[in-house]
Design a protein around this nucleic acid. Structure first.
Lengths: 329, 329
DNA sequence: CAGAGTTCATGAAACGTTTCATGAGCAGGA
DNA sequence: TCCTGCTCATGAAACGTTTCATGAACTCTG
């Protein structure tokens, strides 16, 4: 069960095939090699059960075919979706993923970048929470939803536009008094534009609106207090809610139901993210869907690009509204 | 922005510090080194901004400090929890995780093992779906929820016991006519014992029970048809449901509500897994909680154990029942 | 047929680390 | 003083790959 010692190497293959070491390398890498030599090498590989060893290559080329992904966790379904699609995109290009979970800890973000350096990852895709993070200039670095400077590409959805759509949809549903709720930590930087877009559209549409930031720790009780303030004669004086994220929307819907209100009959609720599980069933009935697949694709092709400096500093991808139990991307 | 060429190596540090290469290595690895030498080396490291290079070590030692995790995806919250806790355990021991998403594709399981070999991971933790998977004998291999043979350690929760608890709880709630539902692919091998435990306890408790396997593709419509068969005079003739997983339970609860039934007033629903999100709010109100943290710990310490063969072939960890919005592990 | 050009295998060096045999330096005992 | 034994730094080899300068064997042209 111990690691097989003396596993065959390219040198062994070369000897077995009666060719030079370099020839084996070229066969394996699909480079120009004469027909007869190729055949001999391939047979020798079969006979010996040779397994390519990436460690040697990593040392020699200083490229590991690994991209680090720095993200708070994988428990939040939005992050889980991101991890999933980024992994798919990396795999298409024959890259591996080095996962770093920060748990929103700013120190860990910095430590991880150090760790990534030692492991010689070929690039970093990061969704971070330290606004003062020092961006390494020796490793290709791309962010999700965080704008640092023009020299650090940032991939994000159209958060402002998404906020506007949410307000428009609520207006279409006939809502007149609406509110935007968010938790503290989750909506920093680019995602905070969800509120801006929402507010701007509310003003244009003549909707009466409120904005509330909930504590991270106990959003429910705070939300329920907020709701109590808006109950007149047992009826809600609000008829539409826009939540910063689907996770919050999900929790809020539970809260509303616990308090005896029906969604969407008594109050319309729109989330943001478009998280969903298998069978594409979404967690939240009405939501602004982030194009996770496109975001993943953009991150990966940006970080692997040879000419990072030619990439726009902010890539803003379109969102769409989805309603009903399922949603497609 | 390109990768820094000519990054300082141990040799540079040695030259700068005026010591031998091997001495630098020993300082870095915390081995016995004289006080003065240690100081000189540390200062040289500072001055040069030396960064340890793991590729060199991997080549020389044939150990990468990487464990591969083979799992269908990270979108299912139960898998997301597993990934999360396994990563935490690996990190504690200074290991990295190489993620392989199979999407339940059996061929990919095999391909990944090949890929893992080439990347020289130090071990594999796998949650697979091919019952005939060839287990590599040259890499430490540990499974989750899948028993292959006595020589391949399998970590699992007490599925049988969990099934029994579910039946007992339903009985406590006063249920008399219950059913166990599962989707096709999800409950193979160890997890299939959930049904066995449930059935055995139902028999003991004198509960009338049914068992139904739903198609993977369209469980909802099939479930709704099943439910129609159990409606008498607009009332459900079933008063308790036990679902194979929380994800299914979650979907079933949505289905029930769509059909106008209340949970738990009209019908009690118990899930399995104990998936939850931040703030520890669980997805499903009543559930049998798998000890994910313990499972992760067991997997990691097993796969890293020097003496894999002395590890029991089946490690069965206790589950518990949780009710209410939150659940602690 | 000679010369120029092309194709393609060879052999060796290099990547950055760990590890091991060697021996220098020193302390303690006889 | 000499010997033994110990601690600990040294220098070199080794890990498995890529890559590059070299030159052998051809083909083509005039």
């Amino acid at each position: 069960m111990a690691k097989a010692k003396n596993a065959p190497t390219m040198a062994d293959v070369a000897r077995e095939a009666g060719v030079a070491l370099g020839t084996v390398s070229r066969v394996i890498n699909g480079q120009q090699v004469g027909e007869e030599f190729r055949r001999k090498v391939e047979e020798a590989i079969q006979r010996l059960g040779y397994q390519y060893n990436n460690s040697g290559r990593a040392l020699r080329t200083d490229r590991t075919n690994t991209i680090a992904l720095i993200i708070p966790n994988t428990i939040n379904p939005y992050f889980a979706l991101l991890v999933h699609h980024i992994n798919i995109e990396l795999e298409k290009r024959n890259y591996r993923m080095l996962l770093c979970f920060t748990e929103y800890d700013r120190d860990r973000e910095t430590e991880f970048i150090q760790m990534v350096r030692q492991n010689r990852a070929d690039g970093i895709i990061a969704l971070t929470y330290n606004p003062n993070l020092t961006i390494p200039d020796d490793i290709p670095f791309v962010t999700i939803d965080r704008f640092f400077s023009v020299s650090v590409p940032c991939i994000a959805a159209d958060n402002f536009g998404g906020g506007r759509i949410a307000a428009q949809k609520l207006a279409e549903f006939g809502c007149r008094k609406v509110a935007f709720l968010r938790t503290g930590s989750s909506l920093t930087n680019e995602p905070s534009k969800r509120k801006d877009g929402f507010v701007s559209a509310c003003v244009e549409l003549g909707l009466s609106f409120e904005v509330l930031a909930l504590e991270d720790e106990a959003p429910y009780s705070q939300f329920e207090a907020f709701l109590q303030d808006h109950v007149v004669d047992g009826k809600l004086s609000l008829d539409g809610l826009f939540l910063g994220t689907d996770m919050l929307a999900w929790q809020i819907i539970q809260s509303l139901q616990r308090m005896g209100f029906r969604v969407p009959e008594d109050v319309q609720v729109i989330g943001f993210d478009g998280i969903r599980m298998f069978g594409n069933q979404s967690y939240v009935v009405s939501t602004i869907v982030q194009p996770v697949q496109d975001i993943a694709e953009a991150c990966v092709s940006a970080v692997l690009s040879r000419h990072l400096s030619t990439i726009p500093s902010l890539i803003c991808l379109p969102v769409h509204y989805a309603s009903g139990g399922t949603t497609k991307e």
